[in-house]
């Protein structure tokens, strides 16, 4: 009997969400990169992280690359675009942190507006460490940039009502539902946000991210199970594309942050940081991320090749 190649068919499909005017995320009806089984949907997107303030805390190697431009997010974003051509730019409003510069929502909105006017790719808008403050800045930014389909990272359990109502409903942008590596809560939060009235096509999700070695296996199994529920059980509450802010996690762990003076036996700090970022990004992509956010240009290049080679 002739060999018949088996293929795994699922009844479910990840929803295709359009970010900005044309960046498509999701749409796959097979496990990540399983192109031999069927439609892998849109190619996973690779974005670059910038800040609204100068990134003092970043390792010197990154400041060597971006430092010249990083005093102004527009200059910074343009540099990234010209040099590395990411699929999107993620602007993180670190300056809004009440513990730091405590910039006002209005000021953040002006920055976002300026950026939107100058950057040709879609934006993802990330906040600071305060959920309460993020709700305030997201509302203002969404209001300043209505119907842009920009992604707001993130709505969490503590602020999903404000963020969902403003970003996802009133001002026509996209809400990212973020939970901290808890499968049941990931589903619950998606349901709560849709029950508010946010349309599923205006949602993505971040079911939690971590650097490799920092509870990463929980991240991977959570993502695996989400994708299986979405595809195999056709669970519509989990069919949102996943956006993973990889760089938010990997650059703060000691493997990336410890200097060569402190840890001479660990070798080049820059290479360590890139390695952590690449390993994490490759892991979450293989577990189903539809977009990753990265910092180092080398990581962007390698992860993009990784995606292109597999698809």
């Amino acid at each position: 009997m002739a060999y018949k190649k088996p293929s795994q068919k699922f009844s479910g499909k990840i929803r295709e969400v359009t970010v900005g005017s044309g960046l498509k995320l999701g749409g796959e009806s097979v496990l990540p990169f399983y192109k031999f089984d069927g439609d892998t949907g849109a190619k996973p997107a690779v974005g670059m992280e910038i800040w609204d303030v100068f990134p003092e805390s970043w390792p010197q190697s990154l400041k060597d690359i971006f430092g010249e431009y990083a005093d102004d997010p527009v200059k910074w974003a343009k540099f990234c675009m010209e040099k590395y051509n990411p699929d999107f730019i993620c602007i993180r409003f670190e300056g809004a942190n009440p513990e730091g510069e405590d910039r006002s929502p209005e000021e953040c909105a002006r920055t976002a507006e300026r950026l939107a006017g100058e950057v040709p790719v879609p934006l993802m808008i990330a906040g600071c460490d305060s959920d309460e403050k993020n709700a305030k800045i997201f509302v203002k930014i969404a209001e300043a940039l209505p119907d842009k389909n920009y992604v707001f990272l993130s709505a969490v359990e503590a602020n999903y009502k404000e963020v969902g109502a403003a970003c996802g409903m009133a001002y026509g942008n996209i809400v990212s539902a973020e939970s901290s590596v808890d499968l049941n809560l990931a589903k619950q939060l998606n349901i709560l946000i849709t029950q508010l009235g946010v349309k599923p096509e205006k949602m993505v999700m971040n079911p939690g991210c971590a650097a490799v070695g920092y509870g990463f296996e929980y991240v991977i199994t959570t993502m695996d199970r989400i994708k299986l529920a979405a595809l195999d059980q056709n669970d519509a509450t989990l069919q949102m594309p996943i956006v993973s802010p990889v760089s938010f996690e990997t650059w703060k762990v000691k493997e990336s942050a410890a200097s060569e003076e402190d840890m001479p036996e660990w070798g080049s700090q820059e290479e360590r940081g890139i390695a952590m970022e690449i390993a994490t990004a490759a892991g979450v992509l293989a577990a189903g991320s539809n977009a990753v956010i990265l910092r180092h240009p080398k990581s962007v290049e390698i992860i993009r090749n990784f995606i292109d080679e597999l698809l």
Partner: peptide, 8 residues
């Protein structure tokens, strides 16, 4: 196990 648990 046919449907993933969540509170709702």
């Amino acid at each position: 196990g046919r449907n993933l648990y969540c509170d709702s």
